[in-house]
Design a protein around this nucleic acid. Structure first.
Length: 773
RNA sequence: UGGGGAAUAGUUUAAUCGGCAGAACGGCUGACUCUGGAUCAGCUAGUUGGGGUUCGAAUCCCUGUUCCCCAGCCA
């Protein structure tokens, strides 16, 4: 199981027994568009996590906006999820099913004085919301009585008001630095027809209201969404903590999947369709799941891809090569090989009897794939080969057919090119005259250099087919970040679709099911187009080409791809002190306002020998100073105390003020003293400190109950070191071979063996001696 | 500019207590080959900058920088 931060959180919650129910997740699409590859990641995460932890995953349609949603999308979304291989069982839900309960929640909020009806206009509300730097102002309607709010809200529901005349808002904080907490709108009036509830409602809940409460209704445990909802978590918790009994669902955010050379914006996808840049939502060049399905990509490949990408919180953009590799890897094992020629060049086998036809038995699978099965391939005097596989004047490195050269016809004979017939006017090669070696079938001919094996089809017996070659839809890896003055449409790849009308396919495919995926040898993976292919007019989609190191080599002179998207490594220094010096500035002001602090600031420097910086960091807060002074009384070594204080204690405190922690200044001073005296090692000291921060107490007592001490006896340490060296001969060899980074490994081993009691300075010295011996 | 997030090879991502920076994709060699595919072997390349603590820092402390999200009655 791939471990990511979400799964770690869930595992920890299970261990701690946080939830009284199985792990419950949900995939919550809004039914207003088609699912794309980015959704696949979310689906795989939510359904995958539920499966792994023996939980359940709900499918919930977040249909709270009647003007954009449609049943058509509900159906396509379900089809796509099923195609991916996931099943929500009986857990199919709609936010619209909860409208009545959500409404009751809203009334509860009103009754608790936590929500009010605002009758300001949209523009007024916007203006009063403030900006990111300025606080908002409270609406004049904010302090309406509960009774008035209830009455108004009920009349909103009853349809007494026009759109936009009233909204229901949560009463939170108009000056919150989080814009979303400035009295978020909970309900708006929309006299619109909903595709499921019809005209039953004319007020509709907002996402920020409906989502957390729907999660609560369904008893979701982990509500996983994408990064842009991080700010919404505050409202989520506010609502759930007020209205849902514990243990409440909690929201976690991960980075959405972005892929090079594609877009996933619903609006832009729609634009591609409506403006006819593609043939539809399922045009095989689209990133939608329906397009991927039509193109022939398997659901397994999609799942493998999205899992390999991983789950993290970094905004990222995956190279499309990883997806392509995953598709090939998946298809390689599952696709039988057949032959097809895209751009035919006729070859006459001059020494093969006219009218004779031979059925060659050809394996569907290459040697390295452990599968069996063959099909007959007809061979006669006239065949087609790929035009690219012949060169009149072969360039260096060309390994295929050329005048005078011999190649093997895959699964067939070795042929030699005797003559290239050319059009007298254009000079174009129109036909090849070759001779075959009758005893070369399944055998290596002697005395003939065979340059390669090439694919071919019988001229008369092969089937005509149309083949569609797809390439990336865009020429830029980031079409959604266009240069100044351009749009994503400017990056449309004019060659993203190439239709080859002249292709020929070996006849065996006619007998196979139409949805079978093949590898056309040396060309790529193909499948019949589910919309346009017919038995008498075959149409194949290229799912993905094969890797082609020959083509890559030909393009060699072009610079190796290196368009680094990361920022330049070294950025010009901005030495101006105008930068955010907030924290240090705040400390300075605190000292200016409080003479005690100012005195301490000087004293720490003058009598205890701290640097200005250290003194500054400690003296921003009077309680902190008191704590430090208590420590100094026990152990007047200021420098040591400051190091421990700043580098260890503040880390452990994780931003909490010291006065809220059970640790006392005296205990802290005592601990530092014990470490400095060598009674315990630094690492042990850190463990003790952690415990003090957690539970308080006396350092000496902790040391005693933990049985801590420090081993500084050279003989004892040498014995441990000798054992460690004996146990790790390979590491020792590597160390002596120059991998000196392994010293840390040995240190770790010795520390572990001694339960952390070894004196590290001594161990280091002894280890170095022992290892260099 | 307030708040909320994130920075590890070209890309995506690992790293138990502070103890070997590991993998995949890509790129480059080579081996093998009746697919210029696959496979195999090898190489390449990294902790956002600067300071500090420590025997030892991706990890702890300080201080910079860059990027993303938020001012819809969308989700």
């Amino acid at each position: 199981m791939p471990k990511d931060f979400i799964r770690e959180i869930i595992a920890r919650d299970i261990e701690k027994g946080v939830y009284d129910r199985p792990i419950t997740t949900r995939f919550p699409p809004e039914p207003n568009g088609f699912l794309h590859i980015g959704h696949a990641k979310s689906i795989a995460l939510n359904f995958g996590v539920a499966e792994e932890f023996n939980g359940v995953c709900h499918l919930r349609f977040d249909d709270t906006n009647p003007t954009t949603e449609d049943m058509l999308y509900v159906e396509s979304i379900q089809r796509d999820i099923r195609w991916l291989g996931y099943d929500w069982g009986e857990h199919l839900y709609f936010a619209s099913d909860y409208y009545e309960r959500l409404y009751q929640f809203a009334e509860t909020l009103i009754q608790q004085g936590l929500a009010y009806v605002d009758s300001a206009s949209e523009e007024e509300i916007r203006a009063m919301r403030g900006t990111v730097t300025e606080p908002g102002q409270e609406s004049p309607y904010r302090n309406r009585s509960v009774a008035e709010n209830l009455d108004l809200f009920r009349r909103m529901r009853a349809g007494e008001f026009e759109d936009g005349t009233h909204v229901l808002r949560a009463k939170i904080d108009m000056s919150s630095p989080n814009m979303l907490l400035r009295d978020p709108i909970l309900y708006r009036i929309k006299h619109a027809h909903h595709f499921r509830t019809g005209d039953a409602w004319c007020i509709y809940p907002m996402y920020d209201f409906a989502h957390p409460l729907s999660d609560g209704i369904e008893r979701i445990t982990h509500s996983i969404c994408t990064l842009e909802f991080e700010n919404n978590r505050a409202i989520y918790n506010w609502l759930v903590d007020h209205l849902i009994p514990p243990p409440q669902p909690r929201q976690y955010e991960f980075a959405r999947l972005e892929v090079d050379y594609t877009i996933t914006s619903k609006r832009k996808l729609l634009q591609l369709v409506t403006e006819g840049h593609v043939s539809g939502w399922d045009d095989p060049r689209m990133p939608t799941l329906s397009a991927l399905r039509r193109r022939g990509v398997t659901p397994e490949a999609v799942r493998t891809f999205v899992t390999r990408v991983g789950v993290a919180k970094t905004n990222s953009r995956v190279e499309i090569e990883l997806f392509e590799h995953t598709i090939r890897d998946d298809l390689n094992y599952r696709s039988p090989r057949v032959m097809a020629v895209l751009n035919p060049l006729k070859v006459i086998i001059t020494n093969y009897p006219a009218g004779q036809v031979e059925e060659l038995e050809a394996s569907y699978w290459p040697r390295d794939i452990d599968k069996e099965g063959t099909r007959p391939v007809p061979f006669s005097r006239e065949i087609f080969i790929e035009r690219d596989d012949f060169s009149l004047d072969p360039p260096k490195g060309f390994k295929r057919l050329a005048p005078g050269r011999s190649v093997r016809l895959r699964h067939g004979y070795v042929i030699t090119c005797d003559e290239a017939v050319r059009d007298p006017d254009t000079g174009e090669v129109t036909e090849l005259r070759c001779s075959y070696l009758p005893d070369s079938l399944g055998a290596r001919p002697r005395g003939v250099k065979v340059w390669a094996a090439i694919h071919w089809v019988d001229a008369a017996r092969s089937l005509p087919a149309e083949v569609r070659l797809y390439d990336r839809l865009f020429t830029s890896p980031t079409p959604d970040a266009p240069e100044e003055g351009k749009t994503f449409l400017d990056y449309l790849n004019p060659d993203s679709l190439k239709v080859i009308a002249t292709a020929r396919v070996e006849p065996s495919v006619a007998a196979n099911p139409a949805d079978m995926r093949y590898q056309f040898e040396r060309l790529g993976y193909f499948i019949q187009d589910s919309e346009d292919s017919r038995p008498d007019a075959l149409v194949f989609n290229r799912i993905i080409s094969l890797r082609d190191s020959w083509r890559k080599k030909k393009k060699q002179p072009s610079a190796p791809k290196q368009p680094s998207r990361s920022q330049p490594k070294s950025t010009p220094r901005a030495e101006e002190p105008n930068a955010d010096r907030i924290a240090s500035e705040a400390r300075r002001q605190a000292r200016a306002a409080n003479p005690d602090l100012q005195a301490a600031y000087r004293k720490l420097q003058e009598t205890l020998g701290l640097s200005q910086r250290e003194a500054d960091l400690i003296t921003g807060d009077i309680r902190q100073v008191r704590f430090f002074h208590q420590a100094v009384e026990v152990y007047p070594h200021g420098k040591s105390l400051a190091n421990w204080f700043l580098n260890q204690l503040l880390g452990l405190a994780k931003g909490r003020p010291l006065s809220e922690l059970p640790i006392t200044g005296a205990a802290f001073g005592k601990l530092v003293k014990l470490v400095d005296e060598g009674v315990i090692s630094r690492n042990q000291g850190k463990k003790v400190l952690a415990e003090l921060v957690q539970q308080g107490g006396d350092p000496e007592a902790i040391i005693q109950t933990r049985g801590m001490s420090q081993i500084s006896d050279a003989d004892a340490l040498t014995a441990v070191i000798r054992q460690t060296i004996a146990d790790n001969p390979d590491k020792v060899a590597a160390y002596r071979g120059g991998k000196t980074g392994l010293l840390g490994f040995f240190m770790g081993q010795v520390m572990r063996a001694t339960g952390g009691k070894a004196n590290p300075q001594m161990v280091k010295k002894l280890l170095e001696e022992a290892l260099s011996a």
